[in-house]
Simulated assay, not measured.
Amino acid sequence: MAEIRGLLFDKDGTLFDFQATWGGWAADLMTELADGVEARAEDLAARIRLDRPARRFHPDSILIAGTTDDAVEALLPGLPHLSYEGLYAKLIESTLTIPPAVATPLAPLMDRFRSAGFVLGVATNDAESAARAQLDALDVTHCFDFIVGADSGHGAKPAPGQCLAFCAATGLLPHEVAMIGDSTHDLYAGQAAGMVPIAVLTGPAGSPELAPHAAAVLPDIGHLPAWLDLP
Protein backbone atom coordinates (compact mmCIF):
# COMPACT_ATOMS: atom_id res chain seq x y z
CA MET A 1 0.00 0.00 0.00
CA ALA A 2 2.97 2.32 -0.59
CA GLU A 3 0.89 4.48 -2.93
CA ILE A 4 -1.37 5.61 -0.07
CA ARG A 5 0.02 8.81 1.45
CA GLY A 6 -3.07 10.31 3.08
CA LEU A 7 -5.77 8.98 5.39
CA LEU A 8 -9.06 10.87 5.50
CA PHE A 9 -11.35 9.73 8.31
CA ASP A 10 -15.05 10.10 8.82
CA LYS A 11 -15.74 10.99 12.47
CA ASP A 12 -18.86 9.35 13.88
CA GLY A 13 -18.85 5.60 13.46
CA THR A 14 -15.21 5.68 12.38
CA LEU A 15 -13.03 7.57 14.84
CA PHE A 16 -15.86 7.27 17.36
CA ASP A 17 -18.21 4.39 18.05
CA PHE A 18 -21.48 5.78 16.73
CA GLN A 19 -24.06 4.25 19.04
CA ALA A 20 -21.96 4.64 22.20
CA THR A 21 -21.30 8.30 21.42
CA TRP A 22 -24.63 9.47 20.06
CA GLY A 23 -27.38 7.09 21.22
CA GLY A 24 -27.53 8.28 24.82
CA TRP A 25 -27.03 11.92 23.83
CA ALA A 26 -29.99 11.74 21.45
CA ALA A 27 -32.25 9.96 23.95
CA ASP A 28 -31.57 12.60 26.60
CA LEU A 29 -31.94 15.43 24.09
CA MET A 30 -35.36 14.22 22.95
CA THR A 31 -36.54 14.31 26.57
CA GLU A 32 -35.13 17.81 26.98
CA LEU A 33 -36.67 19.13 23.76
CA ALA A 34 -40.01 17.61 24.77
CA ASP A 35 -39.89 19.34 28.18
CA GLY A 36 -40.16 15.93 29.80
CA VAL A 37 -43.46 15.05 28.10
CA GLU A 38 -43.10 11.35 27.32
CA ALA A 39 -45.43 11.20 24.33
CA ARG A 40 -43.74 14.19 22.72
CA ALA A 41 -40.30 12.75 23.35
CA GLU A 42 -41.34 9.49 21.69
CA ASP A 43 -42.73 11.40 18.72
CA LEU A 44 -39.42 13.25 18.30
CA ALA A 45 -37.46 10.01 18.62
CA ALA A 46 -39.59 8.41 15.93
CA ARG A 47 -38.84 11.31 13.59
CA ILE A 48 -35.12 10.54 13.75
CA ARG A 49 -35.57 6.75 14.05
CA LEU A 50 -34.20 6.51 17.59
CA ASP A 51 -34.99 3.70 20.03
CA ARG A 52 -35.10 5.77 23.21
CA PRO A 53 -35.29 2.90 25.73
CA ALA A 54 -32.32 1.16 24.10
CA ARG A 55 -30.56 4.50 23.54
CA ARG A 56 -29.64 3.38 20.03
CA PHE A 57 -30.44 4.56 16.52
CA HIS A 58 -32.18 2.34 14.02
CA PRO A 59 -29.98 1.57 10.99
CA ASP A 60 -32.12 3.78 8.73
CA SER A 61 -31.88 6.90 10.91
CA ILE A 62 -31.22 10.12 9.04
CA LEU A 63 -28.77 11.11 11.78
CA ILE A 64 -26.33 8.29 11.03
CA ALA A 65 -24.84 9.93 7.97
CA GLY A 66 -26.84 13.14 7.86
CA THR A 67 -26.00 16.74 8.67
CA THR A 68 -27.26 19.02 11.42
CA ASP A 69 -29.60 20.52 8.83
CA ASP A 70 -31.05 17.06 8.18
CA ALA A 71 -31.67 16.63 11.91
CA VAL A 72 -33.37 20.02 12.17
CA GLU A 73 -35.61 19.31 9.20
CA ALA A 74 -36.65 15.96 10.69
CA LEU A 75 -37.34 17.30 14.19
CA LEU A 76 -38.78 20.76 13.50
CA PRO A 77 -42.33 19.64 12.54
CA GLY A 78 -42.61 18.16 16.05
CA LEU A 79 -41.36 21.39 17.66
CA PRO A 80 -43.51 24.12 16.08
CA HIS A 81 -42.67 26.57 18.88
CA LEU A 82 -39.00 26.62 17.79
CA SER A 83 -37.51 28.37 14.78
CA TYR A 84 -35.18 26.61 12.39
CA GLU A 85 -32.31 28.77 13.58
CA GLY A 86 -33.17 28.22 17.23
CA LEU A 87 -33.28 24.44 16.92
CA TYR A 88 -30.08 24.39 14.85
CA ALA A 89 -28.26 26.42 17.51
CA LYS A 90 -29.59 24.16 20.27
CA LEU A 91 -28.36 21.03 18.50
CA ILE A 92 -24.93 22.50 17.84
CA GLU A 93 -24.59 23.67 21.44
CA SER A 94 -25.52 20.26 22.78
CA THR A 95 -22.90 18.50 20.65
CA LEU A 96 -20.01 20.65 21.87
CA THR A 97 -19.84 18.92 25.25
CA ILE A 98 -20.71 15.34 24.30
CA PRO A 99 -18.04 12.87 25.49
CA PRO A 100 -16.98 10.84 22.43
CA ALA A 101 -16.50 7.08 22.79
CA VAL A 102 -13.50 6.17 20.65
CA ALA A 103 -13.61 3.13 18.39
CA THR A 104 -10.00 2.40 19.37
CA PRO A 105 -7.43 4.48 21.30
CA LEU A 106 -6.82 7.38 18.93
CA ALA A 107 -3.68 9.16 20.13
CA PRO A 108 -1.24 6.24 19.77
CA LEU A 109 -2.80 5.16 16.47
CA MET A 110 -2.64 8.64 14.93
CA ASP A 111 0.92 9.08 16.22
CA ARG A 112 1.84 5.82 14.50
CA PHE A 113 0.39 7.04 11.21
CA ARG A 114 2.12 10.38 11.48
CA SER A 115 5.44 8.74 12.32
CA ALA A 116 5.03 6.65 9.16
CA GLY A 117 4.62 9.85 7.13
CA PHE A 118 0.88 9.84 6.47
CA VAL A 119 -1.09 13.06 6.08
CA LEU A 120 -4.26 12.85 8.16
CA GLY A 121 -7.66 14.51 7.91
CA VAL A 122 -11.23 14.36 9.19
CA ALA A 123 -14.28 14.80 6.95
CA THR A 124 -17.60 14.77 8.76
CA ASN A 125 -21.22 15.66 8.10
CA ASP A 126 -21.31 17.07 11.62
CA ALA A 127 -20.51 20.76 12.15
CA GLU A 128 -16.81 21.58 12.08
CA SER A 129 -17.02 23.26 15.49
CA ALA A 130 -18.49 20.12 17.06
CA ALA A 131 -15.82 17.95 15.44
CA ARG A 132 -13.03 20.17 16.72
CA ALA A 133 -14.53 20.28 20.22
CA GLN A 134 -14.74 16.48 20.38
CA LEU A 135 -11.21 16.01 19.04
CA ASP A 136 -9.97 18.67 21.48
CA ALA A 137 -11.56 16.72 24.34
CA LEU A 138 -9.38 13.76 23.39
CA ASP A 139 -6.30 15.94 22.76
CA VAL A 140 -5.90 14.68 19.19
CA THR A 141 -6.84 17.73 17.11
CA HIS A 142 -3.16 18.44 16.45
CA CYS A 143 -2.81 15.04 14.76
CA PHE A 144 -4.93 16.13 11.80
CA ASP A 145 -3.70 18.35 8.99
CA PHE A 146 -7.24 19.17 7.80
CA ILE A 147 -10.67 19.06 9.48
CA VAL A 148 -13.82 19.75 7.49
CA GLY A 149 -17.50 19.67 8.42
CA ALA A 150 -20.75 19.99 6.51
CA ASP A 151 -20.79 23.70 7.33
CA SER A 152 -17.19 24.40 6.24
CA GLY A 153 -18.11 25.43 2.71
CA HIS A 154 -17.31 22.23 0.83
CA GLY A 155 -20.68 20.51 0.98
CA ALA A 156 -21.59 17.26 2.69
CA LYS A 157 -21.01 13.61 1.90
CA PRO A 158 -21.87 11.68 -0.28
CA ALA A 159 -20.78 14.54 -2.57
CA PRO A 160 -16.98 14.61 -3.00
CA GLY A 161 -16.38 18.24 -1.99
CA GLN A 162 -14.91 17.51 1.43
CA CYS A 163 -12.56 14.91 -0.03
CA LEU A 164 -11.39 17.20 -2.80
CA ALA A 165 -10.87 20.01 -0.29
CA PHE A 166 -8.54 17.72 1.69
CA CYS A 167 -6.50 17.13 -1.44
CA ALA A 168 -6.41 20.82 -2.29
CA ALA A 169 -5.25 21.67 1.23
CA THR A 170 -2.55 19.00 1.42
CA GLY A 171 -1.34 18.73 -2.17
CA LEU A 172 -2.11 15.02 -2.35
CA LEU A 173 -3.71 13.45 -5.39
CA PRO A 174 -7.04 11.66 -4.78
CA HIS A 175 -5.66 8.22 -5.65
CA GLU A 176 -3.01 8.72 -2.93
CA VAL A 177 -5.70 9.00 -0.24
CA ALA A 178 -7.81 6.40 1.54
CA MET A 179 -11.25 7.63 2.61
CA ILE A 180 -12.20 5.64 5.71
CA GLY A 181 -15.79 5.54 6.90
CA ASP A 182 -18.63 3.51 8.31
CA SER A 183 -21.40 4.45 5.89
CA THR A 184 -22.07 4.34 2.17
CA HIS A 185 -22.09 8.15 2.26
CA ASP A 186 -18.39 8.04 3.15
CA LEU A 187 -17.58 5.42 0.55
CA TYR A 188 -19.54 7.17 -2.21
CA ALA A 189 -17.77 10.46 -1.42
CA GLY A 190 -14.37 8.80 -1.57
CA GLN A 191 -15.17 7.01 -4.82
CA ALA A 192 -16.51 10.18 -6.44
CA ALA A 193 -13.32 12.02 -5.52
CA GLY A 194 -11.12 9.24 -6.88
CA MET A 195 -9.91 8.04 -3.48
CA VAL A 196 -9.57 4.49 -2.17
CA PRO A 197 -12.73 3.78 -0.10
CA ILE A 198 -12.21 1.75 3.09
CA ALA A 199 -15.12 0.65 5.28
CA VAL A 200 -15.12 0.02 9.02
CA LEU A 201 -17.75 -1.77 11.08
CA THR A 202 -17.95 0.60 14.07
CA GLY A 203 -21.15 2.21 12.80
CA PRO A 204 -24.65 0.82 12.28
CA ALA A 205 -24.00 -0.53 8.76
CA GLY A 206 -22.84 -4.10 8.24
CA SER A 207 -20.42 -5.68 5.82
CA PRO A 208 -23.09 -6.75 3.29
CA GLU A 209 -24.11 -3.11 2.82
CA LEU A 210 -20.59 -1.70 2.73
CA ALA A 211 -18.48 -4.33 0.97
CA PRO A 212 -19.76 -3.67 -2.59
CA HIS A 213 -18.48 -0.10 -2.35
CA ALA A 214 -15.20 -0.61 -0.50
CA ALA A 215 -11.68 -1.74 -1.39
CA ALA A 216 -11.60 -3.36 2.06
CA VAL A 217 -13.89 -3.81 5.07
CA LEU A 218 -12.13 -3.67 8.44
CA PRO A 219 -13.50 -4.28 11.95
CA ASP A 220 -12.25 -0.84 13.05
CA ILE A 221 -9.53 1.68 12.28
CA GLY A 222 -7.14 -0.20 14.54
CA HIS A 223 -6.79 -2.69 11.68
CA LEU A 224 -5.53 -0.05 9.23
CA PRO A 225 -1.83 -0.52 10.04
CA ALA A 226 -2.01 -4.15 8.95
CA TRP A 227 -3.94 -3.22 5.79
CA LEU A 228 -1.28 -0.59 5.04
CA ASP A 229 1.51 -3.10 5.75
CA LEU A 230 3.03 -0.86 8.39
CA PRO A 231 5.93 -2.41 10.29
Rank of each mutant, 00 (worst) to 15 (best):
I147M: 06
A89V: 01
R56I: 09
F118T: 10
I180Y: 03
D70G: 09
L135H: 10
P108A: 05
G222I: 08
T31M: 13
L50F: 12
D229R: 14
A199L: 04
G222E: 11
R49K: 13
F144E: 02
L29T: 11
C143L: 12
C167G: 15
D43N: 14
H213C: 06
L75H: 00
S129Q: 14
L187G: 10
P80A: 02
L79N: 03
I98R: 12
P204I: 00
L210T: 03
E85A: 14
H142E: 14
D17Y: 00
H185I: 00
A211T: 11
G121C: 06
F113L: 09
A131R: 10
A27D: 12
D126F: 07
E3G: 04
I64A: 04
A41W: 05
L201I: 11
G206W: 02
A168R: 14
D111I: 00
A211G: 03
S207F: 00
P212L: 07
H213P: 02
E209K: 11
D51T: 12
E32W: 04
D229C: 07
W25G: 06
P231L: 08
D69Q: 14
G206N: 11
G203M: 03
V119K: 10
T104K: 01
E209I: 09
T31V: 14
G121P: 02
D70P: 06
H175V: 02
R56F: 04
L96Y: 09
A34C: 07
E128Q: 13
L44R: 12
P105L: 08
Q191R: 15
V37D: 13
W22Y: 13
F166W: 02
L109F: 08
E73R: 15
G203T: 01
G171A: 13
D35C: 04
V196W: 02
L106G: 01
D139R: 15
R55W: 05
V72Y: 00
E42D: 15
L218W: 12
T184C: 11
L228P: 03
T202W: 01
L173E: 14
F144L: 07
H81W: 08
T184L: 15
E73W: 01
A169T: 06
L63K: 08
D186M: 07
T141E: 12
P225Q: 06
I147C: 06
R52M: 14
T21A: 11
I221M: 06
E209F: 04
A205P: 00
P208F: 07
V37I: 11
A107L: 13
A165Q: 10
D139L: 10
T97Y: 09
A39E: 15
A193R: 05
P225I: 07
K90Y: 02
A211M: 08
H142G: 14
H58I: 01
P105D: 10
F144N: 01
L224N: 07
C163V: 09
H154M: 04
L8A: 06
N125M: 04
C143N: 12
P59I: 12
G66D: 03
T104D: 01
T124F: 03
Q162E: 08
A137I: 03
G181Y: 04
V72E: 00
D220N: 15
D186Y: 05
D139Y: 09
L91M: 11
R40W: 03
T202F: 02
P108I: 11
F144C: 05
P174E: 08
V217S: 03
G153D: 13
E176C: 09
L228A: 07
W227G: 02
A46S: 15
